[in-house]
Design a protein around this nucleic acid. Structure first.
Lengths: 136, 136
DNA sequence: TCCTACGATGGACTGAGTCCAAGTCAAGAA
DNA sequence: TTCTTGACTTGGACTCAGTCCATCGTAGGA
């Protein structure tokens, strides 16, 4: 994720301590935090950071394609930094745990032309649901 | 959808005018209304019906498996009465139109055992995205 | 070092959804 | 038919996630 900071600088981003902290919080695999969770972790490193800044930064990162929004069961959106490696999600119906998974094949191919209703279909998002080992 | 009322009565539901109206609003194919839209349409038929009742009734219908929640881009959940015929959704990234679609094959089969991390996977929800004929 | 436009702040605001105490009424009993 | 009662409805207050905006601060170029 440290190369993220490089990429952002390359895109003309002014590098502030707030943006650095948000980018640091969003590092690692299988990280799927809500905006408030990102804020809570950011506050540990930079106590003055505001919620609005976290929302702004997350929104900008989504626009740049550096992270993706994951809409799950709960009310709050989650943010997935693993945007450069296409993947799907496996969600536990019990505790809400999310794992990144890589199914075989391309789900787009499963939608026959007569089921496309004239749409230009560009993307298929798959959410697998079940129970994790702890909840099962 | 009128047999829905029968099924609900069979389950011991007290049949009130409010519940009847909510069930009537949620009839037909390709209906994907938000709670507020359901409320707006219900008010046309029963001006005194409250938002709380609409939320309660929708929640109960979801619990009974008579309708399903569809979480889309927007903030508000949508409700899909087509719960007894398994299907997936095709969403227009432009205008938000939703169509029910029936892909071939079972997406559950595309998730190999080594990608299940010990989960008992029971369900796969696929959202296809693209542009509808009007937006393309 | 100075400037300034970009970014941060925090408080008010919105929209979706939940909660709750009080009132209403569907449907079974008499 | 009327009575009874507990399930259902109501509306207003509340919560939670997210947005907006006027003002202040500062990164980084001159």
């Amino acid at each position: 994720m440290s190369d993220l900071l490089e990429r952002l600088r390359g895109r003309g981003w002014r590098m502030t301590s707030q943006r650095r902290v948000v980018a640091e919080v969003l590092s690692g695999d299988h990280v799927h935090l809500t905006a408030d969770e990102v804020h809570a972790r950011a506050v540990e490193r930079l106590p003055e950071i505001s919620r609005a800044t976290v929302y702004n930064t997350l929104g900008e990162l989504v626009t740049l394609g550096e992270i993706v929004e994951v809409s799950t069961e709960g009310r709050a959106k989650r943010y997935d930094p693993n945007a450069h490696h296409p993947h799907q999600h496996l969600v536990c119906s019990g505790c809400g745990t999310i794992r990144d998974v890589h199914p075989v094949g391309d789900p787009l191919c499963d939608l026959p032309p007569d089921q496309r209703y004239g749409f230009v279909v560009s993307e298929a998002e798959v959410t697998y649901r079940g129970l994790c080992p702890d909840c099962a």
